[in-house]
Nucleic acid binder design. Structure first.
Length: 803
RNA sequence: GCCGAAGUGGCGGAAUGGCAGACGCAUACGACUCAAAAUCGUACGGGAAACCGUGGGGGUUCAAGUCCCCCCUUCGGCACCA
């Protein structure tokens, strides 16, 4: 009797797979391809924790299953290695980021290898490799040439402690996502990417995709498309107009004042006419000095200043209405100006109350004396001459037509999505391959000059004035213009971490290509990604950015599919045993190394999948790990009760077919936990029977293999099955053999269970009644009562309704 | 405030409208052992029972964790987006 010893088995099989290149994908295969993608890790200094293997194991299961089903599977791995944590660590410890990165990758790699993932390591990529970022830079140049990259003075989110500009996405509740410190506004000249130009396509193309619904809705909400009308309000006594954007033109009769953002150009334009100009400038300065937290803190108490000397004219009523400046109107959305309808917008209502402005009800059904009536789609228009009596939607159409015909309105749409701030004033990122020439302006490097290498320097600390560390390397900065040959300076900002990850799935296809980011053939063959699993936290950042870049590459013919990922799923977080998020400071981090050491990676992998609903967060449990090890021990011992046979034994046939069906299905639908529990039941069944034949065992080995690959490969050889398990085929089931002949049919009286009877599945009512009414125990429930109704669902249930 | 997901034993969690709690953990008892661990076996929602039990309240149905309406709570996302 042999002992199960994962410490021996696991390294052995990992070496065999490595030596044989078992999991290498063929570049040109007649087999159907299947491309599985996990989010490539950021190699931090902390190493893996047990949260990492959860998504990796899930797709590894699919990868292994697909190979057994005869697919040419591409399941690659790489490193998203540029970024702030490494740079910060490097600065603190005086080690070059390149060195830190190398060490971190080595550690991650060792850990991942010990878990037995079937990655194609021959395609390993690294975003900090110059042969990789060469192509990141190449894509940037394409964006630049297409006019999708532009430089703009922009009030960006500035983190004074990281000394870095942040994208909107990196600001969480007004704080820096990385260091947690407060974020201020700072005007910087930044490279921006016009993702907004793709906003419609990023929404509309979601329709054909197999993404989990919450990802789709989150992306749609983030992009935030709305349809409305731009309306011109005349400024009294001038020829100028003030343009507003509104989604509710039907409420125009209720527009009793206007509000513009503090930064609105109108203030400068009419500087001379405005009698309280100074006051407005002061207000503007105050609001720009507010951090985002301060701005949201004062949500309840609106501030603002009336513009004295200017009045607007409501285009439909002809009334003169005042104009205010307030920071509740954002310069970055719509036209930076609004018509305020206090009766039907709670923000306008609050403002009107505070500044004692008139409130005119135009949709009936609310209580204007108490609060704004906003949920009014069913309401009818009142006090609105042209559209009185209409419902809201009809009124919107009618008034929009009217204003468009008069030339003072225009149907339009707006997005919440902003352009992508692409510059970082940091060292550890891809240099932006542009120079600024005195004669030619911004010019991109010749593509043959790529990669523009990150200069190896001693000091990569951020500068106090917020410039990139590259800015002080004079012999790097000063260069010549590729266009005119004159004097030019390099762009010294680097790219954000999202750059390298926006296209990495393409590099896997052909990772050593030095002529293109990947060959056309490989792109044609492997794209799109069939299944991409990753964290929900990447929904509005990485996932959207990479879809955007892919569409750009589609537009220039590099890729042939509109979308990079056919299917997107997401996993829940693994929490510490105390139910809190795993972190060093909470002291609840579990290192996978310990589990592998004590129980083996097959156990770890199984527990990662058995721990609970894959899509939900769940606390770790060491006892749960033990339970999985117990299962593998029992499984291993099945070889002691093995008997010979070339077919499933008759009493096991149904359960075998059922199990194949259930496991096959569950591995495809993120129900790994129930798939595993089905196999646990199967072990229990065999143990109860005291016997398993070789045919049954063979099937069982293959079913379990994707979850726990080492033990199953080992047993395959041990019991003398031919070749290796990884060369075998995924078992098939026959639908007809998944159904039991006899069942325990529940018998209910008035919907309450009173017993079960053993019958043939296809037994008819007559047969069932004969058994039920011969059963004294069941009968005692009915005695003396009148039977009103009998509900019989063949093969399911028999329910007697009595009175 | 808006959008989304979810509330089932001591815990993680199962249940095409048809036997609620599969499977695992924890726990208790028994076997083995000098003893313990490991292993194996039995029990394990509450209640003495009738019965009661899937966040709360209504409803549809022969039958509801599952469908409909209202409410509460938790988590995730967004947050003055006009």
């Amino acid at each position: 009797m042999k002992e199960y010893n994962p410490g021996l088995i696991e390294p052995k099989w990992q070496k065999i797979w490595d030596d044989n290149g078992t999991f290498h994908a063929d570049n040109m295969s007649l087999k159907q391809k299947y491309y599985l993608l996990i989010e490539f890790p950021y190699p931090s200094g902390k190493g893996l924790h047990v949260g990492h293997p959860r998504p990796y194991t899930a797709l590894d299961i699919v990868a292994r299953k697909r190979r057994l089903e005869g697919y040419n599977v591409l399941f690659p791995i790489g490193w998203d290695a540029f970024g702030l944590p490494t740079e910060n660590y490097a600065i603190k410890n005086k080690v070059h980021p390149r060195q830190v990165t190398r060490e971190n990758i080595a550690r991650f790699k060792e850990q991942l290898k010990s878990l037995g993932f079937s990655f194609d390591w021959s395609r390993e990529i690294n975003t900090t490799d110059k042969n990789y970022y060469k192509w990141t830079q190449w894509i940037f140049i394409q964006l630049f040439k297409m006019g999708l990259a532009y430089k703009k003075e922009f009030p960006i989110n500035w983190c004074p402690s990281c000394k870095v500009g942040l994208a909107n996405e990196e600001v969480v509740n007004g704080n820096c996502e990385r260091c947690g410190g407060g974020v201020h506004k700072k005007v910087k000249n930044q490279w921006m990417l016009k993702i907004t130009e793709y906003a419609d396509r990023l929404i509309d193309d979601l329709d054909g995709l197999d993404y989990i619904e919450r990802v789709k809705t989150q992306q749609k909400n983030w992009i935030g498309r709305s349809y409305g009308l731009e309306v011109d309000f005349k400024i009294d006594g001038t020829e100028e107009t003030l343009k507003v954007y509104t989604t509710r033109p039907d409420t125009l009769y209720g527009a009793t004042y206007m509000v513009i953002a503090p930064e609105h150009e109108l203030i400068e334009q009419f500087k001379d006419k405005i009698s309280n100009y100074e006051e407005l400038v002061t207000y503007r300065e105050e609001s720009s000095n507010k951090t985002d937290i301060e701005r949201t803190e004062v949500v309840k108490d609106k501030t603002g200043v009336s513009i004295k000397g200017l009045e607007a004219i409501n285009p439909i009523t002809g009334e003169k209405i005042p104009i205010f400046v307030s920071d509740y109107v954002l310069i970055t959305y719509g036209t930076g100006a609004i018509m305020a309808v206090p009766a039907h917008d709670s923000r306008d209502y609050d403002f009107a109350k505070k500044f004692e402005l008139p409130i005119i009800e135009v949709v009936s059904g609310g209580n204007i004396a108490e609060e704004a009536f906003t949920d009014n789609e069913q309401g009818k228009m009142i006090n609105s001459e042209l559209i009185n009596g209409l419902e809201v939607n009809a009124a919107i159409e009618k008034i929009s037509d009217y204003l468009e015909n008069k030339g003072i309105g225009k149907r339009t749409k707006n997005f919440k999505l902003r352009d992508w701030v692409f510059s970082r004033q940091r060292y550890w990122g891809e240099p932006i391959p542009l120079v600024n020439c005195d004669n030619c302006g911004w010019v991109s490097l010749d593509e043959k000059e790529l990669p523009l290498e990150l200069p190896d320097v001693e000091s990569y600390e951020p500068t106090d004035n917020g410039e990139s560390p590259l800015a002080i390397i004079e012999d790097w900065v000063n260069t010549t213009c590729p266009k005119c040959g004159g004097k030019a300076v390099r762009e010294t900002d680097t790219m954000p971490q999202w750059a390298g990850s926006s296209w990495y799935f393409l590099r896997y296809l052909d990772p050593r290509n030095d002529k293109a980011l990947a060959s056309e053939e490989s792109i044609d063959y492997f794209m799109p990604v069939d299944w991409y699993n990753g964290g929900m936290e990447h929904t509005t950042l990485h996932l959207l950015y990479s879809r955007f870049w892919h569409k750009v590459l589609y537009d220039i013919g590099v890729v042939k599919t509109k979308e990079p990922y056919k299917k997107r799923t997401s996993h829940g977080m693994i929490l510490g045993e105390n139910g809190e998020k795993m972190s060093k400071s909470r002291g609840n981090v579990v290192n996978p190394d310990e589990i592998v050491e004590e129980y083996g990676s097959d156990t770890l992998r199984m527990y990662e999948m058995f721990i609970g609903d894959f899509e939900k967060s769940v606390p770790w449990s060491m006892n749960g790990v033990k339970g999985c090890r117990r299962f593998l021990d029992k499984f291993y011992k099945l070889q002691d009760i093995l008997v010979d046979s070339d077919r499933y034994s008759s009493d096991m046939e149904v359960i075998m077919h059922k199990t194949i069906k259930k496991v096959s299905h569950d591995f495809e639908t993120l129900k790994y936990n129930t798939g595993i529990s089905t196999m646990m039941e199967l072990v229990n069944t065999f143990n109860k029977k005291g016997e398993i034949n070789i045919k049954e065992f063979e099937t069982f080995l293959i079913l379990l293999n994707p979850v726990s690959p080492h033990i199953t490969e080992e047993l395959w050889v041990d019991v003398g099955l031919p070749g290796m398990l990884n060369q075998s085929k995924w078992p098939e089931y026959e639908e007809g053999k998944t159904i039991d002949d006899t069942i325990d049919m529940p018998v209910q009286i008035n919907g309450k269970l009173r017993g079960t009877i053993k019958i043939k599945r296809d037994a008819d009512l007559k047969t069932v009644k004969a058994i039920v009414f011969a059963n004294p125990e069941l009968l005692s429930n009915i005695e003396g009562k009148t039977i009103i109704k009998e509900i019989f669902v063949p093969g399911k249930i028999f329910n007697i309704v009595i009175k």
